[in-house]
Write a protein that binds this DNA or RNA. Structure first.
Length: 834
RNA sequence: GGGUGCUUAGCUCAGUGGUAGAGCGUCUCGUUUACACCGAGAAUGUCGGGGGUUCGAAACCCUCAGCGCCCA
């Protein structure tokens, strides 16, 4: 069968995604559809290309400092090498090589998915341009007093050998131990509790709550610290919780952030007892040279021997920090690092959202944002890595410290700080430095601030907050986006997090190979409920593929029947009720989808389109219209069907770009959906009268089908039948006959049904299955009686009548009338069965 | 410990005051002029428990239980 088209193309009889995807993507790239023009007069936007906006979607990647360095180090490790064997320069070269190979994988995935990004603007955080911007912003922030260097307790990974920011630490419940140790002798003794016994070697004090009656008399005195035999003071600090443990805590200033704070307040000395590998060092005890965990056991054993262990709890489940990249237990460590003073930046970021300049979608996530920005600690930005932007600070021979800007050079003989910057320091500049900042570029003027940031809520704190802070600082108080749209994470089919260890990771390429990019995209969009994670199962991608196939076949069928978009749509007065109905449904669908998309309700928008396409269009419109298309009076319907498909394909294009492009171009002969106009709902098409009529037809069809099914008739078996009732329904008798396989000829009815005022008489040639029919009718009768009762109770309730809104009362009254009629009808039918 | 969310059909989830829904799965029938990646029909829920507000609660409030996430 042929399906000639304006494009001269024909649709293959089966849909195979692989046949069209890559060639269509090449077509779009070749046509430069995704390249944004900064000199355009159109309003800038990132998603509404089809609505006539100048759209820029800028692709790129960050350099993922720790993660990337770890991967390359691991590869070296397999050859028995460390990065130090290569030296800094060689090592960084290796990382670049690795990046060139692997970075392409993500970009390939994006291309396979058909994303409409502007590849001419692709950026990488380690690019020359962005690197220059990093130095510029560092200097600008330093000059503004927002960057400082200080000795602090930071999170230290003894494996990666680098500092970590707070958010690079994951807290897990680990099975540790809780040990109570007696310090001092006789009267002058006090019991402290700890989960990290080995740190007692570095204790500088014991702290108690100032109001604790148990210890009040001891405040200001000293106790003997066992093993190291040093006298340490007992201090009072409000930070101590009286109810926790023994109410007395050891103060290890150099190895615990809380202790550090207390130590600063009370002048407690900082005693460092571990090296960067987490190995005990410099304590002058037998424990030097032991790994921290071995030392923990050894210290406890020794104290036990001395009779100083008062109580032990093991296992003691408590939260322990782990390196988010390698899972090693983090060790708090006193060290000199660079920090960003976040208070003013965080305040500006919070204010931008509070004032409404920036909107967070879904709104429910805004409190999390505030909780974070309102209570932010200073941000440790130095990392003891080689892969990343090297800190642009140089040290002179006489202790001078200078920040060297992008166009400056350090004096001879000075040395640069060996550390690099946190990855988020550079990716936090994405919103402006990708546009060429600090140059006042045309892109910057046109596209900053960007309209919407779409990202996962898991990096709200990592990335979004950094971008807010750095952008508002760099861009004179103007926030980087108008809307922050946060989506959930993809999880496995049971809603579990995907992880390599669980073995439940889904490879998008594999599923695109199997079901097509459109199917994957539609599945993801259809599951994207605001702010919540979505489960993803192969079956559901298969379901979306089925939907794509359905669209393909519907369009193919429509074209075989002459669907077209030639000339103006006929006036509604010239159309039959079926055509008026589908136009009405189309209009309502477009209206609903538009408002759902505006609210970022992608899942519900997809659901709406899915049901319009499959149920309204395929199951009902096409079936009801087959009669028309077989007749001579089909021109109007052909035009209407062409219009409906045209509009539907446009609307589905953002979620299913490939198949819609292929179908639409074939159907209409148009150039490309990428640059086609977004449909506008035509409210003049809304026609409640036709909707009511079609819903009566649907009811009749469904009821007769049920009857046929209950009577054991084969779907294809033809049976004589006729209708009687209101004229506007009878007008579609032949369509009904076609759907119900009813023959138009003289016969003596052996069964009759009545639905919605229409009487259907059938000849089942012989006796009908009375038992089956009786069972069905009785079931319906019970349901109708229950409905009737519900309605009667409501209408008989004085409170309901007095307080319920008028339209609800009307609705219930109508329901009462309908169920009453149903009961009469069913009762009569039952009586007639005898 | 603080914050926050969730609990609705076998599974994954929609549904913010007016007769409980979808997709997938299940059962029955079926190659009828797009489509078996299909069509038709069917079954399946005291909406986590208990209390309250209301004429009316899956939805609002309180409480209990279980699960999750973020942060310390």
């Amino acid at each position: 069968m042929s399906s000639s088209s304006p494009s001269g193309k024909e649709l293959a009889s089966t849909f195979n995604p692989a046949d069209i995807e890559s060639s269509l993507y090449s077509k779009w790239l070749k046509a430069d559809y995704f390249t944004a023009d900064a000199s355009s007069s159109k309003e800038a936007f990132t998603m509404k290309r089809m609505k006539g906006y100048e759209v820029l979607w800028l692709p790129g990647m960050d350099h993922a400092g720790i993660a990337t360095q770890n991967v390359v180090e691991k590869q070296l490790g397999a050859q028995g090498l460390s990065r130090h064997d290569l030296g800094r320069e060689e090592f960084v070269k290796k990382v670049w090589e690795w990046k060139a190979e692997s970075g392409g994988a993500i970009l390939d995935q994006m291309k396979r998915l058909g994303v409409s990004v502007d590849w001419s603007r692709e950026r990488f955080t380690m690019d020359e341009g962005m690197s220059k911007a990093v130095v510029s912003i560092f200097k600008k922030m330093h000059d503004a007093g927002l960057i400082y260097r200080a000795e602090r307790i930071i999170n230290w990974c003894p494996r990666c050998l680098t500092a970590l920011s707070d958010i690079e630490v994951d807290h897990q419940d680990d099975a540790g131990e809780f040990v109570q140790i007696r310090y001092g002798e006789g009267e002058q003794s006090i019991v402290v509790a700890t989960t990290r016994a080995e740190t007692m070697l570095g204790d500088g004090a014991v702290a108690v709550h100032p109001d604790d009656p148990r210890y009040k008399h001891m405040i200001g005195t000293e106790v003997l610290l066992p093993l190291v035999d040093r006298m340490i003071p007992i201090i009072a600090d409000e930070l101590v919780e009286m109810d926790f443990g023994t109410g007395a805590v050891k103060v290890t200033a150099a190895h615990d952030p809380n202790d550090f704070e207390m130590a600063m307040r009370h002048n407690v000395p900082f005693v460092v007892i571990m090296n960067e590998h987490g190995v005990m060092a410099g304590t002058g005890t037998e424990f030097d040279g032991m790994d921290r965990f071995d030392a923990r056991a050894a210290v406890v054993a020794k104290l036990k021997e001395m009779g100083r262990v008062v109580a032990e709890k093991r296992p003691y489940i408590h939260a322990v920090g782990h390196c988010s990249r390698c899972d090693t237990t983090v060790e708090p460590r006193l060290s000199k690092q660079w920090f960003v003073k976040v208070a003013p930046l965080a305040k500006a970021s919070a204010d931008a959202v509070r004032s409404g300049e920036v909107k967070i979608e879904p709104e429910a996530l805004a409190p999390r944002y505030f909780e974070w920005v309102d209570n932010m600690h200073d941000w440790c930005i130095s990392r003891q890595l080689w892969w990343g932007h090297r800190i642009p600070v140089w040290y002179g021979p006489n202790g001078e410290v200078e920040v060297v800007g992008p166009d400056q050079t350090a004096p001879a003989g000075w040395t640069q700080d060996p550390d690099v910057l946190d990855t988020w320091f550079s990716s936090g500049q994405w919103a402006f430095s990708t546009f060429g900042w600090p140059e006042k570029s045309a892109d910057l003027a046109k596209f900053y601030p960007t309209s919407v940031l779409v990202t996962g809520y898991d990096i709200l704190f990592f990335w979004v907050v950094r971008m807010m802070m750095m952008s508002t600082f760099a861009m004179d108080g103007v926030a980087p986006f108008k809307t922050i749209m946060l989506h959930g994470l993809v999880r496995d089919q049971f809603g579990k997090k995907m992880s390599k260890s669980r073995g439940n990771v889904i490879d998008p390429i594999e599923f695109m190979d199997k079901y097509g990019a459109d199917a994957l995209r539609f599945t993801l969009a259809r599951g994207a409920n605001p702010g919540t994670d979505q489960a993803l199962a192969e079956d559901w991608i298969g379901g979306s593929r089925n939907f794509a196939t359905k669209l393909w076949n519907a369009t193919r069928f429509a074209m075989m029947n002459g669907a077209n978009v030639n000339g103006a749509l006929p006036a509604t007065s010239e159309l039959n009720a079926i055509d008026r109905w589908i136009l009405s449904r189309l209009s309502e669908t477009l209206r609903d989808v538009d408002s759902l998309l505006e609210g970022y309700e992608f899942a519900r928008a997809c659901e709406t389109l899915y049901h319009f396409a499959w149920d309204d269009l395929c199951d009902w419109y096409l079936e009801l219209s087959k009669e028309t298309f077989a007749s001579d009076n089909k021109a109007s319907s052909q035009r209407v069907l062409g219009h409906v498909l045209d509009q539907l394909l446009r609307t589905l294009h953002p979620v299913m770009p490939f198949i819609t492009e292929e179908l639409w171009c074939t159907l209409t002969g148009g150039e490309s959906l990428v640059v086609a106009q977004w449909p506008k709902a035509d409210s003049s098409h809304i026609d409640k009268k036709s909707e009511k009529l079609i819903s009566t037809l649907q009811e009749v069809v469904t009821e007769v089908r049920r009857f046929r099914n209950d009577q054991g008739l084969k779907p294809s078996q033809k049976v004589p039948g006729r209708f009687s009732g209101s004229a506007d329904v009878l007008e579609y008798s032949s369509a009904l006959r076609f759907l119900l396989k009813l023959e138009d000829k003289d016969f003596t009815p052996s069964a009759s049904l009545e639905i919605g005022g229409i009487k259907i008489e059938l000849d089942l040639t012989g006796s009908i299955d009375v038992v089956a029919e009786r069972a069905r009718l009785e079931k319906d009768l019970a349901a109708a009686k229950k409905d009737l009762q519900t309605a009667e109770v409501k209408l008989g309730n004085a409170g309901f009548m007095a307080k319920a809104p008028a339209d609800v009362v009307v609705e219930i009254k109508e329901r009462l009338g309908k169920t009453t009629a149903d009961i009469e009808r069913i009762t009569a039918a039952l009586a007639a069965l005898k």
